[in-house]
Design a protein around this nucleic acid. Structure first.
Lengths: 146, 146
DNA sequence: CAGATCTCAGCTATACTGAAATGC
DNA sequence: CGCATTTCAGTATAGCTGAGATCT
């Protein structure tokens, strides 16, 4: 037996494998599309949460974006270095920082939104509109554990 | 605004996000189930490929399992240390190692197969049998890019 | 010679843990 | 006091790159 590159049969249709492959593809598209603007997934999630919710503490940001408290620190450092967010002490609770979007952050987010929308289209390109809705509905059920 | 932990609306139904969440859940279940037997996903993939294809070179193993050539080295080291595979020089091509399953490797694989099957069931538990087939079919189309 | 193989060192993104310092 | 917040240092998995030595 010299080679070939077929996967073990056990894996071919295993849901865990399919999810891992589909996610890998999606992650690649996303990294490429966000990378054009110097961003990663964490940056997009934080900017989006700030636009939708207004200024938030780092702990709240973490809860809203499902990013760990310790990773939020690094992401906010990077966004602040690029002047996309501001970090200010909370006068009402001196343990907290209040993170808020700058005008530049809002503009960056608008461009990232377009990039992310393009990724969804390219990812779902093999499916019809109805199939896309079905997939989203089934995945939502899995994620919500109902 | 004090807190809450809802995701930004943009993300809630985005296919890339749902795939990432579903994959994260699947990966957690898999790591837990394989961890009971001291294994990770890479170990399972390599053992399964060897059982289905027979002895393979490390390069062929990598192609069959979609694992990088450099990661195969470490995985085979670990499996060999546990006496689950054997690594022997290929007499017909001295660049290659021939990796083959041991009896212990076969027994370990049987237990990992059970663990992995249990994970699929728990993962898909919120869906009916028909919905599971639909999900697998749609994900297969995404992965095969048709 | 070009090309394949194995190995090593190192890197990225995502996600998580533990602990310390500070403040409520 | 217990608890929350920020920060830092470290871990783990999956996946990848580049380079060197060896061999076809």
């Amino acid at each position: 037996v010299t080679g070939g590159d077929e996967l073990p049969r056990r894996l071919q249709r295993a849901p865990t494998w399919l999810l891992s492959q589909a996610h890998g593809h999606a992650r690649g598209l996303l990294a490429e599309a966000l990378g054009v603007h110097g961003a990663r997934g964490y940056h997009y999630r934080v900017l989006a949460a700030l636009e939708e919710q207004g200024p938030l503490s780092q702990a709240d940001l973490g809860r809203r974006t499902a990013i760990d408290r310790s990773d939020i620190v690094a992401v906010v450092n990077e966004l602040e270095a690029d002047r996309l967010v501001r970090r200010a002490p909370d006068p009402g609770d001196r343990r907290r920082n209040v993170i808020s979007l700058t005008a530049a952050g809002r503009r960056r987010l608008a461009r990232l939104d377009e990039a992310v929308a393009g990724v969804q289209d390219r990812l779902l390109e093999p499916l019809s509109a109805g199939e896309r809705r079905t997939l989203v509905a089934l995945l939502s059920r899995l994620v919500d554990r109902r």
